[in-house]
């Protein structure tokens, strides 16, 4: 692991101008994410979580403040500068999967690699590997509309990982999934995290957040908490749990 953090945001501010009224969404957020870290961003709806992660991925412009990605100043980049940065270093997963409707699953997953300049053969190999890992190898030629929500989100994850990005950003990745599909997606996230993937995700779901090393809480556009999730004092030993007691 290198010393330079993958993400460093300094006093990040976003103010939306709706009509004559300026509406602050993020008010001076400071955030540093080291390589290999898994950070969950939580907070009530409207607290600025999505805006924050969109700004980190360059999907939205910041009003003021600095964003450093992988040691490079990114907030001053132009729109296309950000686009190039995204295709090289960032994978994005959305709540509504957002697979490109007109393209097959295979094309959706190969697209970022091709966009990154990989030769078609290499893109295909990477896609076959990823879909195989996610158990979707047989759905390669399906159109996204033929997949279930969980399958779509797994494909979206495969697409986000296609270029082996330095940073995986996810905005409520399980917000639209049932609990079984949520479990599948979580297992995958856990897996890539153990392989050293840096992840920042916004979530409402405690199960998702509990995967993280660190939780960041937002309230009214400000970070009110940022710290590691502690090791449980009551380690369940040898798999014998005491759920009922937890609740008693």
């Amino acid at each position: 692991m290198t010393d330079t953090p993958v993400v460093r945001a300094v006093n990040l501010v976003k103010i939306y101008q709706t009509g004559a009224l300026p509406v602050p969404a993020v008010r001076g957020a400071d955030l540093t994410v080291d390589a290999g870290e898994f950070v969950a961003i939580m907070g009530p709806s409207g607290s600025g979580k999505s805006t924050l992660i969109h700004m980190l991925g360059g999907l939205d412009t910041r009003t003021s403040g600095e964003i450093w990605l992988d040691g490079r100043r990114a907030d001053t980049l132009s729109e296309s500068g950000w686009a190039v940065l995204r295709r090289e270093k960032i994978g994005f997963v959305f709540q509504f999967f957002n697979l490109v409707a007109s393209m097959t699953v295979a094309d959706n997953v190969e697209l970022p690699a091709l966009l990154g300049g990989a030769p078609p053969r290499q893109a295909r190999e990477r896609r076959e590997y990823l879909l195989g890992e996610l158990g979707l190898a047989d759905r390669a030629d399906a159109s996204p509309a033929q997949l279930s929500g969980g399958e779509q989100q797994r494909v979206a994850l495969a697409r986000a990982l296609a270029n082996q990005p330095r940073l995986l950003l996810a905005d409520e990745p399980t917000g639209n999934l049932d609990s079984r599909n949520t479990r599948d997606v979580l297992r995958l996230l856990g897996k890539v995290h153990t392989q050293g993937q840096t992840i920042v995700l916004v979530t409402h779901d405690a199960r998702v957040a509990s995967m993280a090393d660190r939780v960041v809480s937002l309230l009214d556009g400000q970070i009110v908490d940022d710290g590691a999730i502690p090791k449980s004092r009551r380690r369940p030993a040898g798999g014998v749990g005491d759920v009922v007691e937890l609740r008693s």
Binding site: R207, M211, G227, A228, I229, P230, K231, S232, P236, V243
Partner: peptide, 15 residues
């Protein structure tokens, strides 16, 4: 408390 809950959640998940 939140962090504690999340820690508990992690235990449940592992369980």
């Amino acid at each position: 408390q939140r962090r504690h809950y999340l820690a508990l959640m992690r235990d449940l998940r592992e369980l």
